[in-house]
Each structure stands twice: as structure tokens, then as C-alpha cells.
């Protein structure tokens, strides 16, 4: 199974390493023409404003929407979750989102870096105990639409959600070495 990882900026290498460890083929995607023949795409953590600007310059917005329409699953972590949303709260004035997933997400919701944190999460669909969530200047999901299943909450806020072949997590599974959410994406989201 070929899974792309958007490699414009951010923690894309760690996603590729985890995918490869699970037997999938991880592809670093730097240009829109690399999106063909992918079963899924991960938009990694990084700076959502920087990634968004590079996406616009290189024509990624329409290309990702088009490939998603043709069956490519999408998972966004942190900045990637912001880019997938239909509504971004506290966005930059010109910030564009893909509008794929029916969620409203709040950027830098917890505050600055000193407010970044780790916490144990119960994630629905992920077995064998809690998942260590690493939240770096993280957003939270403020509200979700009807078709969206909430997978995890922290302190009342939604931090993981799923909608058919779309998944959003506001924390960083790629930083912990725990492959269970990558496994969930490959098993339950890709091809959903």
C-alpha cells in the first residue's frame, strides 16, 4: 500500500518511518503530480501557515481535493488537521483550508510553547491501553458535524476524530514511536 506524506515542511520523516515499519510504502510528496496512485495521504505536523503557503504556491489545494474525491484517504496531524478542516478559528486572515473534513478547529488553542504538554488519552478504536498524546502548540477541535465520529477527548476538548476516509488528530503520534494510530489509519480509514 502506497501512502504519501506531504513533505513541504515539518515532521514528515517520522511518519514515513512508522509507515514503513508497518509494511506500507511511505512516499515523501513535494509536488502535486506525486499524488496519483496513493491510497492515502498524511499531512504532518509543522507550521500550518508555512505549509499552507507552500501548498498554495505549488497548487496542492485543488490536487488534494481532487485525489480525495477519487478515493485517497487523508489523515492530518496537528497542522495537518488544521489544513483539513472546513472551518479554522483564530486563523491568519489569508489562511486557506482544504475544507475536507466537517470540523471547526481552533489554532494554537492551548497558548504558547510553555503550554505544550503530554497526556494519556483513551482513543476509541485503539486497543491495549492509553495512547501518549504529545501536544505541541496544538489546536483543538471545537465542534464536529453529523458524520464525524469523535475518537478521543482531552479535558473536554476533541483531539481525535474520524469521518469516513478522513482522520484528524491534534497531537503527534509520529513523535512517540507508538504505531497504533498509524495501524488504525491503514486498517480502518484507508479504503473506508
Amino acid at each position: 500500500m502506497r501512502i504519501g506524506v506531504l513533505a513541504l515542511q515539518g515532521a514528515f520523516r517520522e511518519h514515513i518511518v512508522t509507515l514503513e515499519a508497518l509494511g506500507a510504502s511511505g512516499v515523501a510528496v513535494r509536488l502535486p503530480e506525486q499524488l496519483g496512485d496513493l491510497s492515502g495521504l498524511i499531512i504532518p505536523g509543522g507550521e500550518s501557515s508555512a505549509i499552507g503557503k507552500l501548498m498554495r504556491t505549488y497548487g496542492f489545494y485543488d490536487a488534494i481535493r481532487q485525489q480525495h474525491g477519487a478515493g485517497m484517504a487523508v489523515w492530518g496531524t496537528c497542522a495537518g488537521a488544521i489544513l483539513m478542516a472546513t472551518e479554522v478559528l483564530d486563523a491568519l486572515p489569508d489562511q486557506e483550508a482544504l475544507g475536507l473534513m466537517d470540523i471547526a478547529i481552533r489554532r494554537n488553542a492551548y497558548g504558547r510553547q510553555v503550554d505544550s504538554f503530554e497526556a494519556d488519552l483513551d482513543v476509541s478504536g485503539v486497543d491495549d491501553g492509553t495512547f501518549r498524546g504529545v501536544f505541541i502548540r496544538a489546536p483543538w477541535i471545537e465542534s464536529v458535524g453529523d458524520g464525524v465520529e469523535v475518537l478521543a477527548r482531552h479535558d473536554g476538548h476533541i483531539v481525535a476524530a474520524c469521518q469516513a476516509d478522513l482522520m484528524a488528530t491534534t497531537f503527534h503520534p509520529e513523535l512517540t514511536g507508538d504505531p497504533r494510530l498509524h495501524r488504525y489509519f491503514l486498517d480502518s480509514v484507508v479504503g473506508a
Partner: peptide, 22 residues
């Protein structure tokens, strides 16, 4: 704070991880 921990090494190095390629 309960199960929530700030200022860990992983949270500190984690921000640098997010800046990579930038």
C-alpha cells in the same frame, strides 16, 4: 496536572521537530 505534563524534554524537542524543513 493530573495526567497532563508540560515542559517535558519531548515537548521541548517536539517543537523543533515541527520546525524541520523550514
Amino acid at each position: 496536572n493530573g495526567t497532563t505534563t508540560t515542559g517535558t524534554l519531548r515537548v521541548k524537542t517536539g517543537l523543533a521537530e515541527m520546525l524541520k524543513g523550514g
